[in-house]
């Protein structure tokens, strides 16, 4: 097993994260057809303990858990895909694992264009829309002239 290069790892980290954060319905719409595969680990629901840091920067503490679903698959041609996604949607986890596997095959450019690019654009759009609403509630202070200085 050859070690992936740091840039390959960064790319894979990025697409796994985009797939995990995708709204399940959108992923299903963008990737309706699933290739033949074997389940190495059938979709399984569990939790991850989320940690914070004391004072935001100090020692870690346990904040509480979140639900996650994980899945691992192998395509007929051998590529192995993994997923761990927020929530309890088993189809989401299976689809994300399959997309991860497909991204390691010749299908990668197609998946990148048809699935990942729209997901990334939509995520950026949703984020920008919240940020724009927040920006509208930003306070612009102005100083009023006061008695003695007037």
């Amino acid at each position: 097993m050859s070690q992936p290069s740091p840039s390959e790892t960064a790319l894979r980290r990025d697409w796994i994260s985009a797939l995990a954060k995708a709204p399940p319905g959108r992923l299903a719409a963008l990737l309706p057809d699933l290739p033949a595969h074997e389940m190495l680990r059938a979709p399984e629901i569990g939790t991850v303990m989320v940690q914070g840091r004391i004072g935001g920067t100090g020692a870690p503490f346990n904040l509480g858990e979140m639900t996650v679903t994980r899945c691992s698959v192998r395509l007929a041609e051998g590529a192995v895909g993994h997923a761990c996604v927020q929530g309890r949607d088993k189809a989401h986890a299976a689809r994300a694992a399959l997309a991860d596997a497909l991204m390691q095959t010749a299908a990668a450019p197609r998946i990148e264009a048809q699935v990942l690019a729209p997901l990334r654009a939509e995520a950026a759009g949703a984020r920008a829309s919240r940020a724009a609403r927040a920006a509208a509630t930003r306070v612009e202070f102005f100083t009023m002239l006061r008695g003695e200085d007037a």
């Binding site: 190495l40 680990r41 059938a42 399984e44 691992s72 192998r74 192995v80």
Partner: peptide, 9 residues
């Protein structure tokens, strides 16, 4: 590594 777990956990 990836095989040999419980099929029906």
């Amino acid at each position: 590594i990836l095989t040999g777990g419980f099929a029906d956990p």
